[in-house]
Computed example of a mutant assay.
Amino acid sequence: MGENGRLPLLEVRDLHKHYRVHANRWGGRADTLRAVDGVSLTLHRGETLGLVGESGCGKSSLANAMLMLDPPTSGAVVFAGEDLTRMRPRELRRTRRRLQVVFQDPYSSLNNRMTVGQIVGEPLLVHRIGDGAAERRTRVAQVLESVGLSERDARRYPHEFSGGQRQRIGIARALVTRPEVVICDEPVSALDVSVQAQVLNLLQDLQAEYELSYLFISHDLSVVAQLVDRVAVMYKGEIVEQGDVRGVFTEPAHEYTRRLLDAVPGRRSREDP
């Protein structure tokens, strides 16, 4: 049971993701890399939860484990009351249309040999959504319009677009199945600052239009502060602090959170006179 008696839409329970690594390329003794080490999180319907931390702290490993793209070593990922880690492949495939992701790099995440219409429409084919090609084309056109592109853009190729426009294509691809949860994995970090603001505003507008819940992953606390309701701080594979974004950023309880906040340009340290 979550806040105010609400059941969370998505819940991570004591999640671990470990990797076996060798000391050198010739083999030798294998060590265990604990990329995610006992993480628990909840995401409620209509909420945006921020996940922050430096590069290498395990944020993307956690996201991939939650989506079952790289299944966890142990723990549970409960979506709408069902544990994804216990699902059979066919069940998991049906559920994935309700859980989508926007990737960090708008260049490598799109196939330049496919048209925009093919890229955005591919999830409809994979999940067998839509009654025929005409209905799928209509759905692609609608979602392109919702992200600020046009139906004509469906015939073009990714290399014909700017970075910000390419990320809009990636967002459209994530939304075309009408998901309930979208994991945004550093979705603006590869974009210019002026374009970042446009994409963040778009994500906020789309959340209301599509009734979405977001897990927003970022190393940039100034970006997170604009968008999220609650925030979880990740350090060395663990969540060291979480709570309401205003409370955590105003009165951080953990030393690591304080260091992250002190590193934000233009922000005065609490110890400054």
Rank of each mutant, 00 (worst) to 15 (best):
V36G: 04
G28E: 01
Q242Y: 11
L67H: 02
R258M: 13
G266P: 09
R93S: 00
L227C: 10
P72Y: 03
G50T: 02
K236G: 07
G170L: 08
R98K: 15
G46A: 12
G164N: 06
D205A: 14
S146H: 13
V248M: 06
L260K: 03
R173N: 07
M68Y: 02
Y19W: 11
Y256D: 07
A208I: 11
D131P: 00
R246E: 13
R98Q: 14
V39T: 07
I119Y: 10
G121D: 09
R25L: 15
S162I: 05
Q198W: 08
G28I: 08
F249Y: 11
V36E: 04
D205P: 04
G5K: 10
G130N: 06
L51V: 10
Q165I: 10
S269M: 12
G130D: 07
R90P: 00
C184Q: 04
R166N: 01
P8N: 10
K17G: 00
F79I: 04
I169P: 01
D229R: 04
A133Q: 13
V21E: 14
T95Q: 14
R270A: 13
V77D: 00
S189V: 03
S109F: 11
A253K: 15
L15R: 00
R230F: 00
L15D: 01
S146Q: 14
R259H: 13
S61F: 02
V102C: 08
P89N: 07
L206Q: 05
L62M: 12
R113C: 00
V199H: 01
S109L: 12
R29T: 11
A65D: 00
V78W: 05
I217G: 00
F103A: 00
R34H: 14
G56L: 12
V101S: 02
L206F: 08
A23F: 07
G164Q: 04
I169L: 08
L41V: 07
L49H: 02
E135W: 11
P179M: 01
Q167C: 11
S74F: 10
Y214I: 02
D229I: 02
S108L: 09
V182R: 03
R113W: 05
Q118N: 12
G148E: 10
R137Q: 12
V147N: 02
T85D: 08
S55W: 09
I129N: 03
Q198A: 14
D192E: 06
T138S: 15
Q242R: 13
R268D: 13
Y157Q: 13
L206S: 06
A172D: 07
T177P: 02
E211L: 12
R152Y: 08
V143Q: 01
L7V: 13
R97A: 13
R25H: 12
S108A: 15
F79T: 03
M87L: 15
Q198R: 15
L51A: 04
L67I: 07
S218W: 04
R45K: 15
D185P: 05
L202Q: 10
A232V: 03
E11D: 09
E160W: 05
V231N: 01
E3V: 15
L9Q: 11
V223H: 02
F249W: 06
Y107I: 08
R268E: 13
Q204P: 00
V101K: 05
T250P: 05
L43I: 06
M234E: 02
E241N: 11
Y210I: 08
S162K: 09
G130L: 05
S222L: 08
G28S: 06
D105S: 10
S55H: 09
R166T: 01
D131M: 00
